[in-house]
């Protein structure tokens, strides 16, 4: 980065660190923060979507749909995250390739499963064997978003399901008495009121999601914890210009600050959302807001 970095051994402490902290591998570390934030920004709404669909299915009056919703919630919540991330993602990837294989290579006669191997024709590979590395990385990112969304969607579905049931029944009966159809009642009465009950549970999930990103490395995406461990590890002078001892503590301390900062920002944001949602609700928080404005 700087011109004086050619021979770090001769530098004073400050300059040494200015070189050390700006070398290529550290840029990868900084980039991984952006990666993690992007993943959170994409995953949270998608997971909420999965959760909403799951909760809607679970409380459906059509039995198969309701079984489907409830099974989704129960199964995904019951499987340990690490098992899910190790096996589900590989299965998902193989599922995509299997479908593409069936469509693109109908003339292929060899079995797809040969012993332990999973073999599809070259044209069915996802991404294609010829595609550049960034395509592979984007695809991995996309798989990560889906997997995170399915896992966290199941938890969100449970929270939303509870939130929907917490809406006072009198509200729904009133809506019905006004002649609203079931669909109208759901969208105009139930959904606007349930968020305030669901939000505490959802905010918990958000916090867990922020901290679940180290699971990403199981999918081959290098997240901040991976880089902290890699960079903090002992480096001997044979393999780097910047040898140092076991500095993982300092890197993890930095991560601690980052995570605490994220928590604080999230708390502030969620507090504002909560205040907004409580407005005009028949809850104690809503009542408090009403008194504040009228007083």
């Amino acid at each position: 980065m700087f011109s004086y970095c050619a021979d770090p051994d001769t530098l004073g402490t400050f300059r040494w660190f200015s070189c050390y902290l700006t070398n290529g591998v550290h840029w990868s570390f900084y980039l991984s923060f952006i990666k993690v934030l992007a993943l959170l920004a994409v995953t949270a709404p998608v997971a909420l979507g999965f959760g909403f669909a799951g909760a809607m299915a679970a409380r459906s009056h059509v039995p198969p749909l309701s079984w489907l919703g409830k099974a989704y919630i129960a199964i995904v919540r019951g499987v340990p995250d690490i098992a899910f991330f190790l096996f589900f993602v590989i299965a998902l990837d193989q599922g995509f390739e299997w479908i593409r294989h069936k469509v693109l290579c109908p003339e292929w006669t060899d079995p797809i499963r040969q012993g332990n191997d999973f073999l599809v024709c070259q044209a069915a590979k996802l991404p294609l064997g010829t595609s550049p590395e960034w395509v592979h990385e984007t695809y991995g990112f996309f798989l990560a978003v889906i997997t995170f969304s399915i896992v966290f969607g199941a938890f969100a579905a449970n929270v939303l399901f509870g939130g929907m049931r917490a809406v006072p029944h009198a509200q729904l009966e009133t809506a019905e008495a006004y002649g609203m159809t079931r669909r109208q009642t759901f969208w105009r009465v139930l959904v606007p009121q349930m968020w305030v009950y669901a939000l505490p549970g959802l905010s918990n999930l958000w916090m867990v999601l922020i901290k679940a990103t180290p699971l990403l490395f199981l999918l081959g995406i290098e997240d901040i914890v991976y880089w902290a461990r890699e960079l903090g590890g002992t480096k001997t002078s044979k393999f780097t210009q910047y040898p140092h001892g076991d500095w993982r503590m300092w890197y993890f301390l930095f991560l601690l600050i980052f995570y605490l900062g994220m928590t604080r920002v999230s708390e502030l944001g969620l507090e504002r959302v909560m205040r907004r949602l409580a407005h005009g609700q028949a809850t104690s928080a809503g009542e408090l807001l009403r008194k504040e404005t009228t007083a």
Binding site: N23, G24, V25, H26, W27, S28, E230, G233, T236, K238, F239, T240, Q241, Y242
Partner: peptide, 18 residues
């Protein structure tokens, strides 16, 4: 793996080396 010098590791430039 990129974490087992001298067999394979990440160098200062962030590339796989070794």
């Amino acid at each position: 793996e990129g974490a087992y010098p001298p067999y394979n590791f990440i160098n200062d430039a962030g590339e796989i080396d070794g």
